[in-house]
Amino acid sequence: MEAKSGTLSQADAEKLERIAFILKTVAHPLRLGIVHLLEQYPELSVSDICEKLGSEQSLTSHHLQNMRLKGILAVKRDGRSMLYSLKERDVSLIIECLENCQCNM
């Protein structure tokens, strides 16, 4: 597909789709909190995340599962615990960019 001047190339369109997908996936305060924690700690259990965020385990587990299914998080078993980590590092870069934005809110 040839890009005309003023139109997006296929690669640029796919990149924007990926960014939109990531933003939609993490567009919740609790999910953003989880991503922020996992930037600081390489792996955390659901209990650790709940303790650090002051959130309920059932709600936190729901959000963790959603982000795992969408490829944002990775999970591995450690005994009886499930340890979560960031699988999609681009999430951190996108959020960092937004945090550094000089937006008037």
Rank of each mutant, 00 (worst) to 15 (best):
E17L: 14
G79P: 02
K4G: 03
M82A: 13
M1I: 02
L44P: 03
Q102I: 04
S47H: 08
H28L: 09
L16K: 09
L8K: 12
N100R: 12
E43Y: 12
L44R: 05
E14N: 13
C103W: 10
I22F: 05
L93T: 13
L83P: 03
P29V: 07
K15Q: 13
K24A: 12
A74C: 00
K4C: 08
I94P: 01
L53W: 00
S85W: 00
L23C: 10
I49T: 07
M67Q: 11
Q102Y: 08
E39T: 08
E43H: 11
F21S: 08
A27E: 13
M105S: 10
L73N: 05
A3E: 11
C101H: 12
Q40L: 14
I49L: 09
A27I: 02
L83G: 01
I34F: 04
Q10P: 00
P29C: 09
T25N: 09
C50W: 03
L30R: 15
L53E: 05
G6T: 02
Q65Y: 01
G54Y: 06
G33D: 06
V26Q: 05
S85Y: 02
R77A: 06
S45T: 11
P42R: 15
S58N: 11
I19T: 13
N66Y: 09
T25C: 11
C97D: 11
V35F: 02
L53I: 04
L38E: 07
E96W: 01
A3Q: 10
E43V: 05
H62W: 04
L83S: 02
S58F: 10
T25I: 03
Y84M: 01
Q102V: 06
C103R: 11
S85A: 14
S92L: 12
T60R: 05
S5T: 11
E43F: 10
E39G: 06
L93H: 14
Q65S: 14
S47V: 14
M82W: 04
H36Q: 12
S61I: 03
I19M: 10
P42E: 15
V35K: 00
C103T: 07
T60N: 00
D78R: 10
I22A: 06
I19S: 08
I95M: 13
E56L: 07
L30C: 02
Y41N: 11
E39Q: 13
L86V: 05
L53C: 01
I49A: 07
L44V: 04
L44H: 04
C103P: 00
I72P: 02
A11R: 13
Q57H: 06
T7K: 12
Y41T: 10
V46N: 14
K24R: 13
L59G: 11
L59A: 15
F21V: 02
L44D: 03
T25A: 15
L93K: 15
I72W: 04
Q65M: 08
K70L: 13
I22M: 07
I22S: 02
T25E: 11
E2F: 09
L86H: 05
L59W: 03
E96H: 10
L59C: 08
L59D: 14
D48I: 00
G33S: 01
S5Y: 14
R18N: 09
V26W: 05
S47E: 14
I19R: 12
I34Q: 07
K15W: 06
G6D: 05
I94W: 04
L38D: 04
V35G: 01
S81T: 11
M67N: 06
L8E: 09
V26N: 06
L8V: 04
